[in-house]
Amino acid sequence: MITAEQKPVTEIINYISPYRRILLVGCNECVTVCAAGGKKEVGILASVLHLHFLKQGKNLEIDEITLERQCDPEYVEELAPHIDRADAILSMACGCGVQTIASRYKEKIVFPAVNTKFMGASESQGIWAERCQGCGDCMLGITGGICPVARCSKHLLNGPCGGTSNGQCEIGPETDCAWRLIWERLKELGMEDRYEEIMEAKDWRPSGGAGPRKIIREDLSL
């Protein structure tokens, strides 16, 4: 999923302070799972903002709505009846959601309330970690299901650098060396010979090197 974290409240306040009527929009997908921008967080942020502006003698009107998916025009359309009542939109979705709103409601300013972080998975309760960089040419089939592009700090494709200590990355003990994990996994699978296959220079075009990416499925297009 796409992970996100709420922005510092002071930054959000700076964005919306010129406005009085705010449409605060959550998303039921990834940001709900990572507890950054779902219905619950929309409610909490609305209370925090209310309180802040009340202390300053300003009665903020906040319309709270949580959409099924903010990155989907079909659901973003549901905001249409609420738009006229808002001076500004505050989105708690990832950057995809913010941009979908911005492109649909061109006359309204939209602010992000979260920082979109990475494509990751839950490691344990309350901990998410990066797992994929969307390189567009998945090599997990030859690296034992562990991605060196996303999980090696240097995106090294042919093995660990010389900085690994106690199985951890040189950048710090909280990061596992991806190549140590790959090696251990290949050994478990009895496939450590695979390690010596040389990975040639990667074609980064599908990774974004060729510019912003798009998927066009003619079989699904109307």
Binding site: G159, P160, T164, W183, E192, E196
Partner: peptide, 12 residues
């Protein structure tokens, strides 16, 4: 560096 056993294959 770790893992020690990968260091010779890496040289290869």
């Amino acid at each position: 560096a770790d893992p020690f056993e990968i260091r010779v294959p890496r040289l290869a």
